[in-house]
């Protein structure tokens, strides 16, 4: 089989997102940002968000990482811009499920869009962390924001 299995992980859409990342760089009107590291490889991602009235107005990301983490971040921004904070967190959970090979609803699959394609990472256990890193960063950012709001 050899390298042909790589096609499962590095689909055209994934390579496109990593080579031409959407919403990459600084977000001038960001209301919050969160930096997360993958201690096993040293990758670092900084997710920036503009949130108003519990709605994600805009997202961006910056940092260094592998094809999978960069593509995943790009796909995440596309999927979650415009979502309510509540729905975004639900979709983050759905994405997590996909990466460990669990089923999700058709509705969630559709809303995740390109990101749902990364579900094939479930067949590459060593790379699940790479795909999950940006989503964990955003989830932590949203979690912090809620804690601060309730304080």
């Amino acid at each position: 089989m050899g390298l042909s299995k790589l096609n499962l992980l590095y689909k055209e859409t994934v390579l496109d997102h990593s080579q031409h990342p959407r919403h990459h760089g600084q977000l001038p009107d960001a209301t919050a940002h969160l930096e997360l590291r993958n201690p096993t490889c040293g990758d670092v991602i900084d997710v920036q968000a503009q949130i108003e009235d519990d709605k994600i107005i805009d997202l961006s990301f910056d940092g260094v990482g592998c094809t999978i983490s960069q593509a995943s971040a790009s796909m995440m921004t596309v999927a979650l811009i415009g979502q309510s904070v509540k729905r975004a967190r639900e979709l983050i959970t759905d994405f997590s499920k996909l990466t460990i090979g669990d089923e999700i609803s058709d509705q969630a699959d559709e809303e995740l869009g390109d990101a749902a394609i990364l579900g094939t990472v479930a067949q590459f256990p060593a790379r699940i962390k790479c795909a999950a890193l940006p989503w964990h960063a955003l989830d932590e950012l949203l979690e912090k924001r809620e804690v601060e709001k309730n304080d």
Partner: peptide, 14 residues
């Protein structure tokens, strides 16, 4: 290329 991508490729080659 990120070394993780290279290592995944090599892993597929055993």
């Amino acid at each position: 290329l990120h070394p993780h991508d290279v290592a995944s490729g090599l892993d597929m080659e055993g």
